[in-house]
């Protein structure tokens, strides 16, 4: 359940930036290769935010797919799982997306 630790980091960062203003909404970007489960983040968000300047804020999660480029045939592909395999048979893939774990923006009042 590292999502709780992740959510706490997000809250620390946004409350620091909000500098006393009220945080109403936070948008984060979560890639499919980060081992972070959006549902688990939402589950602990409300509880973790309680008593902070982000108490009651909404959490929006933009999910990003895992993508890779095949070094053998040059194809760009979306990965269904973490097994790095191109339909051409090559396992020599460069991951191009899916490792994002970022706070995109927040809405404050």
């Amino acid at each position: 359940m590292h999502e709780l630790a992740i959510v706490q980091r997000i809250l620390e960062a946004v409350c620091e930036r909000a500098d006393g203003r009220r945080v109403r909404r936070v948008t984060v970007r979560v890639g499919a290769l980060t081992a972070v489960v959006p549902g688990a983040m939402l589950f602990c968000w409300e509880l973790a935010a309680e008593g902070t300047d982000a108490d009651g804020a909404d959490l929006d999660i933009e999910q990003r797919p895992a993508t890779a480029r095949c070094r053998a045939c040059g194809a760009d592909l979306e990965l269904a799982d973490l097994v790095l395999l191109c339909p051409c048979g090559s396992a020599d893939l460069a991951v191009t997306g899916g490792r994002e774990l970022q706070i995109v923006s927040m809405e404050v009042t």
Partner: peptide, 10 residues
């Protein structure tokens, strides 16, 4: 309401 762009890694 003000939107603040953060674009920072968690």
């Amino acid at each position: 309401h003000e939107t603040v762009t953060l674009e920072q890694r968690v």
